[in-house]
Amino acid sequence: MADHEAKAHHHDHPEDPQAHATRRAVLQAAIGVGAGAAVLSTLWVGAGLVPRVEKVPSKEPVAVGDTLVFAMGAKADQEITLDDLRAAQGAALPFIIAFPKSPENVIKKDLRNNTLMVILADPARMSPETRQHASPEGVLAYSAICKHLGCTVSQWINNNWVCPCHGGVYDIHNQARVLAGPVPAPVPQLPVRVEGGRVVVAGEFLGEPGADV
């Protein structure tokens, strides 16, 4: 049908085949440019789907001089004291999940890699490197974000620190050496000291915190 019309049309208006070819080339170029512009503008709009990274004080990484506060529970946002850690020692969960609080009193809870674990352990059982970055009283801190898939390492089973998601087990006395599970690396230790009963950050993370992917 369309073929017939095209032929009839051709007979009625004999045209220069060259002009036909030019017209076709122009139309094809126009379609190409139009399609390209449509794809580009879609990508431009689509780029808005990539989340923006906002700089706010509560997203700053943990820094020397920060104090540690309870991340959750009845005492959430309160500073963790040596007494709190002593009280936890006998409990089912002997450690405390903590966030750093800056000297300007901003709790830096909006950066996930700031999730920490702090525990009072026996310095005699610690490896020399671990002891070096713990307080003399035996206060130890680690990043609590599992190196495997980023869960919070929040269980205590058979005297071991265990990630509930895929069963990673860390040795808290030995720089969080991996004892079991699919975990690719130890979570980094955070040097701490005790000042006026409060736990204070004494150095940078000894490694990269966060899931290792």
């Binding site: 991340a71 929040s154 990630c163 998601c165």
Partner: peptide, 17 residues
């Protein structure tokens, strides 16, 4: 909350788990 509960995926993800 900050703490992670023990999770197990549904049966159609259990094999990947």
């Amino acid at each position: 909350t900050v703490a992670t509960p023990a999770v197990k995926p549904d049966w159609y993800f259990m094999w990947i788990f």
